[in-house]
Amino acid sequence: MTDDQAYRGLSPQQVTEYRENGYTTGDGLFPPETFAALKAHFERKLDDLPVGERPEDMDVPHFTDPELFRWLLDPGVLDVVESVIGPDIALFTSHFFCKPAGDGKSVPWHTDGYFWREMIEPAAQAMTIWLAIDPSTLENGCMKVIPGSHRGGDGHYRPVTDDNSVFDEELDQSQIDPAKAVPVQLRPNQYSIHSGALVHSSEVNRSTLRRCGYTMRYMSTSIRFNDALIGDKHQIFLARGRDLAGNVYADPTRAHLELIEARGPGQRFVGAKR
């Protein structure tokens, strides 16, 4: 896919793959100079990470850094999103998920919708663009998916006891067939798109290579955001089109420090992780 093609959304083949498998992949989400600017922006944020905070925990950075809307609301990105959810789009959340070399944490098998169930309804219909900032490979803990699993339900979850995991819950292993897992290996500026109902995971990073991706998560404005329950800790933003569900949208031109403060210590994650 060329840079110009990326700004016309997904191809019919990619849309078919997304519908059938619950995910698809693409090249060159941004023009090279735009991607380079995003990567440099991330590196500055990583350098400024507070002492003791894990780089996997760089959740909702757009709440305190409105400059990120330059990329989150990029017309080319929204063209890609529109290809699978239609023209009325809300930005749900974003997250720099960075696994440092040597001790990057794992993410157990899960669906995103399970962790979003109190925030949006129906949660499974939201989707994620996973943009590779670094190479994402088997060696450094790339995402693995179970194709077609988006047609199932959330399944049964159990507690996680692994200290290397970013979650405290995971899908019961009896519901997972590892032989069906497909690694999603990406070069920088390549991306994957997956459904909120897709079963996926990623392993620890014991390699000498960092693995960072920027997850940009969107939903149709026909999905209802539970503002009454969680609006003090999270907000959504109108990205394109019009509201279809009576949602309240936050202002993308200013920082929303009050949302971070309301989460409190140890409550950085309100959405699903990767």
Rank of each mutant, 00 (worst) to 15 (best):
H41D: 10
P75H: 01
D103Y: 11
T253I: 04
A126Q: 12
P135I: 02
D27V: 14
D112N: 14
W109R: 11
P61F: 01
T137C: 05
A239W: 01
H95W: 13
I223A: 10
R217A: 13
T16V: 00
V81T: 04
V145P: 04
E170N: 02
G86A: 01
N189D: 03
H194F: 12
P135E: 15
A197G: 14
Q190T: 12
K144F: 09
V166D: 03
R117N: 14
G241S: 02
F167R: 02
A197E: 04
P31F: 07
S195A: 05
C212F: 01
G241N: 01
S165F: 03
Y18G: 05
P183N: 06
Q190H: 15
A255Y: 02
A132V: 04
L68G: 05
R158G: 02
G104I: 10
P100N: 11
V248G: 00
L29Y: 05
M58E: 06
T161D: 07
D177M: 03
H95A: 06
V204L: 06
H156T: 14
N205A: 01
E169Q: 14
S195K: 06
F225D: 07
I193P: 07
G231K: 13
V182F: 08
E258F: 13
I236L: 01
Y7H: 07
K99T: 10
V60H: 11
K45Y: 04
G152S: 13
M58S: 04
S220N: 11
F269S: 09
H256T: 01
A179R: 13
L244K: 12
T161K: 09
F92L: 14
K105N: 12
H41K: 08
E261N: 12
G213L: 05
E121V: 15
D168S: 12
L131N: 06
G104R: 11
P265T: 06
G26I: 01
M127N: 12
T93C: 15
N21S: 14
K180E: 04
D103A: 13
K233C: 12
F42K: 09
P265G: 05
D243N: 04
G52K: 02
P135V: 09
F35L: 05
I129N: 07
D88W: 11
E82F: 08
P265Y: 10
E118H: 15
F30N: 02
H200P: 08
I146D: 10
W109C: 09
P32W: 10
